[in-house]
């Protein structure tokens, strides 16, 4: 158990709940925010190791959050994985260009998603063991 902290930024409470359970079972600490402003405050106070970001957020979308967070000295380096219901066409490139490490469309495949989390956290590079077995 690494005990690393992951911040979930998503306005859907069910998603927060379901994903938190999955992350916890993999040894991570999960915290959640339902909008961008709360998320930034939480990121600064908790210094998470990774941010999982939805693009459709109330009061300023995920892209705005990405732009803000990347501009902050203290949390700007935190890796971000986007998990959105939006169409990857267009959004994926835009998110990666804005500094996200990966783009997943909802619903993601649990194993691929966790592999990306580990990679983003620098825990592993070759995660071939997680690949469709």
């Amino acid at each position: 158990m690494s005990g690393k902290t992951i911040l979930i930024v998503d306005d859907d409470q069910y998603l927060q709940l379901g994903l938190t359970a999955r992350l916890k079972s993999n040894g991570y600490r999960a915290i959640s925010a339902g909008d961008g402003a709360t998320a930034i405050a939480l990121a600064r106070s908790e210094s998470p190791d990774l941010i999982i970001l939805d693009l459709g957020l109330p009061a300023g979308d995920g892209f705005l959050f990405l732009e803000r967070v990347k501009g902050l000295a203290d949390v700007g380096a935190t890796p971000v994985i986007v998990l959105s219901a939006r169409d990857p066409a267009g959004n994926k490139k835009r998110a990666l260009d804005a500094g996200a490490l990966a783009f997943f469309q909802k619903p993601p495949d649990n194993y691929e998603f966790l592999a990306a989390i580990r990679l983003a956290l620098g825990e592993t590079i070759a995660l071939s063991t997680f690949l469709k077995t």
């Binding site: 859907d12 998603l15 379901g18 359970a21 999955r22 459709g56 219901a85 169409d87 909802k106 619903p107």
Partner: peptide, 27 residues
Amino acid sequence: LSHVSHELRTPLTAIYFFTTNVLDGLL
């Protein structure tokens, strides 16, 4: 259609997470 597809994905994701959580013995 893209709105419908987007809106369907959100609850679908929650269902997916809860189902797999239970299936994978998390509970």
